[in-house]
Design a protein around this nucleic acid. Structure first.
Lengths: 231, 231
DNA sequence: ATCTAAATGTCGAGC
DNA sequence: GCTCGACGTTTAGAT
């Protein structure tokens, strides 16, 4: 990995056309050729970048550019698309290179799809007398997270989200519309289950006769069958 | 901005629990306290990070950690949530700091909402005899991108996207449902216009009687009224 | 502050 | 390879 600190300007063209005025920034050139231009604040997203696969070459600085103070011109061209990033270096303050080697990558310890597993185990959270039919019940337009039966024997389709927003309600609505055409299943009651349900999503859901259930992840994990726990 | 190259391991807990095994990485500490852990490949997204506002402090390395080879322990705690990133430094290969100053930020030259402007000018792309009523036609649930009239005088509501996906069809469906309740507008025909329309979105749209129109941005830009062009 | 839609989204799974 | 949904989404815009 090469890290360059430089006063620079940049221009990007591809899916969008954009430019960066002259300022001092950190330029990261990764082993796979990808380039990141970072400012000294904001988020983890660079101001501008080029994703791999791409190729960095240093181009000739023409006279008019040299007059503007450009000492080096980098052209980063994507190998498969016409995305292109041009960086004009006006002053290189630091230029270092390090051998990093490969990275094992991030390991996610707590996946939130775990919610589905927990709710399947604790299906009575939907109401007394509920029984699980199956998880990932397949329909023509995709799997329904949980299909259950209520105490009266009626079908219940559950969509689970960490954060319940409108698109989740739309997704469940499509499933319900389809499932309610199936005489073996209909009538199917919809349940929108999430750790947190946004007000507008709740209004939309309830307007469509979909029941909202807020899940308490910590409580569900506490109640989990201890024999299945990893530690 | 501080850039540290180090053999390190990390642990994140917050909205998710995750960890990074020991490897050599680039650690970027920005002026606002945010921290980025980058590997030597991949995309612009760090392996792990902490967004501002947050505070970095170096904690005491306890005995068992020291035995594992930890020479420094960084704890980055988010100021408003309980998100926390812990970085164990096992070997610091480089540690540099640079004054970058503030950044003017990225300037986007070609905004794709430009498509709306172009289609408003070239409304006949929807079909012969179409006329523009107005752009950003306001409804109770939000603005419809374009409201037009077809050759027979019937209302046409157009939703414009760069890439047409299912959520765009849902959005237009909500508008149409509302507008068709207005006797002054009804019946309103829906048009889903995008540079690219995903197959599933097309199926859903056409199933709902919404017409799909693929926009050729380059051709539209070429046909643009030259007097309004900037260069 | 809250909510919604867009993003040069990125990423990973399933097909 | 493409498509689709999730994301510690992030981010910008509007209410």
């Amino acid at each position: 990995m090469r890290v360059v600190i430089a006063r620079c300007a940049a221009r990007y063209s591809g899916r969008l056309a954009a430019h960066l005025p002259l300022a001092t920034r950190a330029i990261m050139v990764k082993a796979d050729g990808s380039v990141l231009l970072h400012s000294d604040g904001g988020s983890y997203k660079p101001l501008n970048w080029m994703s791999p696969p791409c190729t960095l070459r240093t181009a000739v600085v023409d006279e008019t550019a040299a007059e503007r103070g450009v000492v080096e011109l980098w052209v980063v061209q994507h190998d498969k698309t016409d995305d292109r990033l041009e960086i004009e270096l006006h002053e290189v303050l630091s230029d270092t290179e390090h051998e990093l080697g490969s990275d094992p990558g991030l390991i996610k310890d707590g996946v939130e799809a775990h919610l589905q597993e927990l709710l399947a185990e604790q299906i009575a959270l939907l109401g007394d007398g509920h029984t699980l039919i199956r998880r990932e019940y397949m329909t023509a337009i995709g799997p329904v997270d949980i299909l259950a039966r209520d105490s009266s024997g009626a079908s219940v389709a559950v969509e689970i989200k960490r954060r319940g927003e409108i698109d989740g309600v739309e997704q469940l609505t499509r499933y319900l519309e389809l499932m309610n055409r199936d005489p073996l299943l209909a009538p199917v009651q919809g349940v929108f289950a999430a750790q947190e349900i946004k007000p507008q999503a709740r209004v939309l859901a309830e307007d469509r006769g979909i029941r909202c259930v807020v899940l308490d992840y910590e409580a569900m994990r506490g109640a989990e069958d201890p024999t299945t726990r990893l530690f």
